[in-house]
Structure formats: structure tokens, C-alpha cells
Write a protein that binds this DNA or RNA. Structure first.
Lengths: 259, 259
DNA sequence: ACCTGAACACCGTTCAAGT
DNA sequence: ACCTGAACACCGTTCAAGT
């Protein structure tokens, strides 16, 4: 459904790759896709995604709101461009030789990008394109990390999708907790809650909640990042471990070679 | 930061558990939290999240927009209540004895819930509470699936977080592709793209893209669900496999120290 | 007490007009 | 050609007023 240009690509993709030429010739007071996206990102970094309105972006550039529409078909398109620009990864990246370590580094790069621009996670979904420049770059790096693994291309892509999805949702959860604040639950609140989260209705969770292990596991409470990072690594290692096992041929099928 | 009621719980949590009493006595023409949330969900199911405006919800109930504000502090709170109500899981669920199979079933329940109300994924983040009724229910079931596993409570919670996060992002990706449509890329578009996604700049991805394996792996193109489901199961099995290995005492890090 | 009516500030987007 | 000005339809939310 994404509007396709005469080039056969979604407009945002064409723009991001610099293929959507701005006609030129005329006054040209200096507006461009790049400047618009950069201004929008600056606002998002400073004041959050909600502050990114067409009027605010235009104003910060010294233009009227409507001038933006000559470069961007609407706010949706601007958001897509912002999203891709924000998940940039360092120009030079050297990945370790061991695929497990390389995958950890790669996951860390993705995670860092989200930490640098957390508002990316607030962009309405259904607007991500795997064909945008930075998505392509990240995918390429991911495949590089798995270079030596005896897997089919489709499987490698499956792995990097799984890992990047995992990283995404981990950061998302992290941010949710950070501003929702488990702190919002006072001891009295917990007391009240335990009247309704009873062992007979929630036999497995109730004991954990009462022991304080449920909310404590949701980090932030301590203010330290330890809990968060531990949770992040826990899941990542689960995936890596599962992949390791699969590669060594001892999944459900059977036990393989002794290599 | 979430506004806390005098009960010591976030307002949305109190409402969802039925602890936020509506004062009563007076005209009372029949509005209630439940009816408002149900009406909003009906609109979201039929026309998408964007169609859920305070005015639309009120109108569908035959009330004025402002009447809603007596029950709900604002749209944010309404969205939180909708979210929790939407991820409901069947009343009676029997999980298989084997934890691997139980985890698969559990993940499937979560996945079904998102499929039934895909707009849930469009709700702005930072508004999820793990203390809402259905979240608690789902967590309880997840712990039930892991009942017999020799893991600490914190670790079990880590596992169900990892799995539910994975399921969430899988469905999200799936929906993105469904309405973004890889179809939007014509053969000419792919041609154009290959001029910029070159083997020298993207050594690992370019060959895959040219072979058609990149976009094909992103399903939908075929219209069949096979690709999607295969991708979903691939990642899930990776996690389960990793967990299995961990439980059996041989993590990826210490491959050397045999079982 | 519950609900309404009118109003406010703001948003994305259009269109015709200026240079 | 690029940009502006005025205007439109819509949104969430407020406040004082009705019953």
C-alpha cells in the first residue's frame, strides 16, 4: 500500500537513498530533505517525539510550515526518514572473529542506537522499511557477524531479525519501566494489589509478587542499570546458546559430529 | 511518573482491577469504565486505532465527548485500559506437561491475542503496566509453563519476558510487512536499488539482495503465511533450545567444560 | 452526581497566491 | 521553482452551566 514513485520504490526509500531529485532551479532558499530530517531529529532528541510537529520543525529552520510539504509528502514520510537516520551505526566497525562475540557486539550496536534516540521506539509501526539505508547497513553487518556460520541465507536473516527484534523490545521495556516507574507502586499499593492477585487465582505469580521478586525483577527500582543489563544479556545469551546448539547439529534431530 | 491515586497504585491499574469506585448516586445514565473501553475496542477492531478519538467513542455510546472525562482521566488512560483488555487469554487453558511444549503453547496464546487485536501494537509505548489484570494473568500462565524448571523466580520471569517480547516484535514485523507490502518494490525498483546497494559497500547483504533471498525472506510476497510462521518458529525454537541447554548446564560461553 | 454546550489551543493538510 | 498566507477540518481538553 505504500505509495510507490515512478522509480518503483516507496518514496521514503527513494528519498533516503538520495534518488528523489529535488527539481531545482528557482529561488531555493536552502531547504532540503537532509536539513528537514536533521531539524526534526534535533527536536525529538531534545523534547521528545510529541514535540515534533510540522510547525515546530519548520519554525526551527526559519520557514513556514507549508514549505516542508515540497520536500516531504506528509508527516508519515518525515517520521520514516527520521527513523532510518536515527538508527545509524558507526562508519567503521570491526567485528570479532568468533561469531558469538560478533553477534554480541552487533546487538550492542543496535542497542546503542536506540539508547541514543529512544524516541524511535515511539514512531507508529507499520512504517519501517527494511530497504532504508541504515537498515540495509545494519543487516549487512549482521550477516558479516554470521559470516562463518554454516547456515543458509534465509536462516541467517532469520537470526538477525530475531536478535534485532529482541534488542528492540528489551530497550522498549526498559524505557517503559523508566518512565512508568515501578516506584509508582507504594507499599500500600502492593498491599491492595495482593488482595486481588491471590494465590488461588494466580497460583504461580502471587507468591512471586508477594516475595517482591516480580517487581524487583523489573529493574529501575534500584536506579542501577545492573538489573536491566542482566536481563538483556540473559535473553541474548539464550538466543546465542540456542543458535550454537543448532549449528552444532544437536537440536531435536539428533546428536551430531564431534567437531 | 505515572499518576498515582490515593490507593498507592497507578490510576489505570486501580480502574482495571475494579478498585476505582465511581462515586454513584445521581442521574447515572449508564456510562461506565467497562462500556467505554468496550466501545473503544470495537472501534479499534473495526477501523483501526486512529479512528479511536474521544469524540468517536462518546458518539458510539450516545454521549457527548466530555462525559468520558468523568470516568477516564484522558486519552492516555483509555489507551492503557484498552491495551490490557485486548490481550485477554482464554479463561480455561491447559498447558502440556513438557515445559518446551508448554512454552510454545503459551507463546501461541500471546500471539493469538495480538492477531485478534493488532492495533494494540500501535499504542504509544511507555504505557504498559505489568500490573494490569491481563498482564498478570499472562505472566501467571508463563510461570506455570516453567513450573518444573530448576530456575530461580527471577530467571523464569526473564524467560517469559524474553519470549513475550520476541512474540510481540514478530507480530509487529509481520504486520509492518503486511501493510507496507514488499510488493511495493517492483522489479525496476529492485534494479535501481541494486545500483546503490553494491557489493563493495554491502559485501554481505548485496549478494543476498540480488539473489532475491532478502526480500523473499520477508514474507507476504507469496501471500502465504508459511514464511511468516516459519520465521516465528525459527526464533522461538532458538530461545527454547538455548533455555534447554542452559537448564542442562552447558551455556554457550563455557562450551569447553563438557556436560 | 452526572452530563452538556460552548470554547480554546493545537494539529496536519489544502489551495491559491506571491516572487 | 520555491515559499507564503489564509483557511479548513479535526483533535484533546477546560470550564462553567444545567438537571
Amino acid at each position: 500500500m505504500a505509495e510507490t514513485t515512478e522509480t518503483g520504490l516507496p518514496r521514503a526509500v527513494a528519498i533516503a537513498w538520495g534518488m528523489q531529485e529535488v527539481p531545482q532551479r528557482g529561488p531555493n532558499r536552502g531547504l532540503s530533505h537532509e536539513r528537514i530530517v536533521a531539524a526534526a531529529i534535533e527536536i525529538a532528541d531534545a523534547e521528545g517525539l510529541a514535540a515534533v510537529t510540522m510547525q515546530a520543525v519548520a519554525k526551527s529552520l526559519g520557514f513556514t510550515t507549508m514549505s516542508l510539504y515540497r520536500y516531504v509528502s506528509g508527516k508519515d514520510e518525515l517520521l520514516r526518514l527520521m527513523q532510518d537516520a536515527a538508527v545509524a551505526v558507526p562508519e567503521k566497525v570491526s567485528l570479532p572473529g568468533d561469531w558469538r562475540e560478533a553477534l554480541r557486539v552487533w546487538a550492542g550496536l543496535v542497542r546503542d542506537a536506540f539508547h541514543a534516540h529512544p524516541w524511535v521506539l515511539g514512531i507508529p509501526r507499520g512504517q519501517v522499511s527494511v530497504l532504508m539505508p541504515n537498515s540495509v547497513r545494519v543487516a549487512d553487518l549482521g550477516l558479516a557477524a554470521l559470516r562463518d556460520l554454516p547456515l543458509a541465507d534465509e536462516e541467517k536473516i532469520g537470526v538477525i531479525l530475531t536478535v534485532s527484534q529482541y534488542v528492540t523490545s528489551t530497550v522498549e521495556l526498559e524505557l517503559n519501566l523508566a518512565d512508568e516507574g515501578v516506584v509508582a507502586v507504594t507499599p500500600e499499593g502492593l498491599d491492595l494489589l495482593s488482595q486481588v492477585v491471590t494465590p488461588d487465582r494466580y497460583p504461580h505469580l502471587a507468591p512471586v509478587l508477594l516475595a517482591g521478586n516480580y517487581l524487583e525483577t523489573q529493574p529501575v527500582a534500584t536506579g542501577a542499570d545492573e538489573g536491566i543489563d542482566a536481563g538483556y544479556e540473559f535473553g541474548l545469551e539464550l538466543i546465542i546458546s540456542g543458535l550454537d546448539r543448532r549449528v552444532h547439529g544437536q537440536s531435536a534431530r539428533g546428536v551430531g559430529d564431534g567437531a
